[in-house]
Simulated assay, not measured.
Amino acid sequence: MNGTRRGLNRALLALVGLLLIAAGPLAVLAGSSQEFAQAWTRTGTDFWARVQEQLAAAKIPGQETSWWTVAVMGVLVVSAILLVCWIVSQGGGRTNQLARDDGDAGTTTVETAVASQAIKAALAGNKQVLSASVQSWQVKGGSGLKISLQARKGASPRELAEVLDELVNGLDALLGKEIPVLIRIKAGTRSRFARTERVA
């Protein structure tokens, strides 16, 4: 539930995976077959010799630097800029506005903090919940809600999901429309070290 370009990420991961899959058998052959290792070494040596010839044939007049070197540096700089832009574009899509209604009398907006306070207050007395956080994200057609619960050790995920389902239905009734909701129930170090509630 964010602005990450999942298609591009998956394509890049698939490309890297294919390269690693291809490199694995080659590395095994190079380590196990002396003939393959020698052939690989000869191929690399010949390739590097051709690269050196190309660099020597395309030197900048009055300089020791080749035009190919300048071109490669330019490609590396552009690639670095594109990678930075790609990294910055990851995630995103978060908003502090849960709902918006444009009418003849004006515009009414509901902030995420309203839903966050209502949900946290409703869960305050629940012994199975250690903490809760609420965020909203921009999705197709409006905003969506993400509710994260830190469950106490031994808590029933089904019961927590049912409680949250009731809360979300109540929130939908208050807003007058259904909103997409992602519920995440997690446990971690805090759950393991939290004091266990005992029922007599």
Rank of each mutant, 00 (worst) to 15 (best):
G176W: 14
K177N: 12
R190G: 09
L171E: 06
G170W: 00
K177L: 10
L164M: 01
L174V: 10
L174S: 14
L164V: 01
S156N: 11
L175S: 09
D165F: 04
P180L: 10
I185H: 01
D172M: 14
A187L: 05
G188I: 03
G176D: 12
D165H: 06
D165A: 06
E162V: 10
L164A: 00
I183K: 09
L182K: 15
N169C: 04
T189V: 12
A187H: 02
T189Y: 05
I179R: 07
T189S: 08
G176A: 09
I183G: 02
K177D: 13
L167T: 00
A161W: 10
L175Q: 08
R158E: 06
S156P: 08
S156G: 02
L182D: 08
G170T: 01
L175R: 05
I185Q: 04
K177S: 11
E159W: 12
E166Q: 07
L164I: 02
N169G: 04
A187S: 07
L175W: 07
V168I: 07
A173F: 10
V168P: 02
G188M: 11
A173E: 15
P157I: 02
R158L: 10
I179S: 06
I185E: 02
L182R: 13
D165T: 04
P157C: 06
L164T: 00
T189H: 08
R158C: 05
L167D: 01
A173S: 15
N169L: 06
L164F: 00
N169T: 10
N169D: 05
L171T: 11
V181I: 12
G176I: 09
L174M: 09
I179C: 06
A173W: 11
I183A: 13
D172C: 15
L167F: 00
K177Y: 12
L160W: 00
E159D: 09
A161G: 15
I185C: 03
L167K: 01
G170D: 01
D165N: 09
P157Y: 05
E178Y: 04
R158N: 07
L171I: 08
I179T: 09
V163G: 00
E178M: 09
N169Q: 08
L160G: 03
L175C: 10
E162L: 11
P157N: 03
L160E: 00
E162F: 09
I183C: 07
G188D: 05
G170F: 00
A161E: 13
K177T: 14
T189R: 07
L167M: 04
S156D: 15
P180Y: 12
L175M: 10
T189A: 11
A173H: 13
R184E: 14
A173G: 13
L171F: 04
V163E: 02
A187Y: 01
L167V: 07
P157K: 03
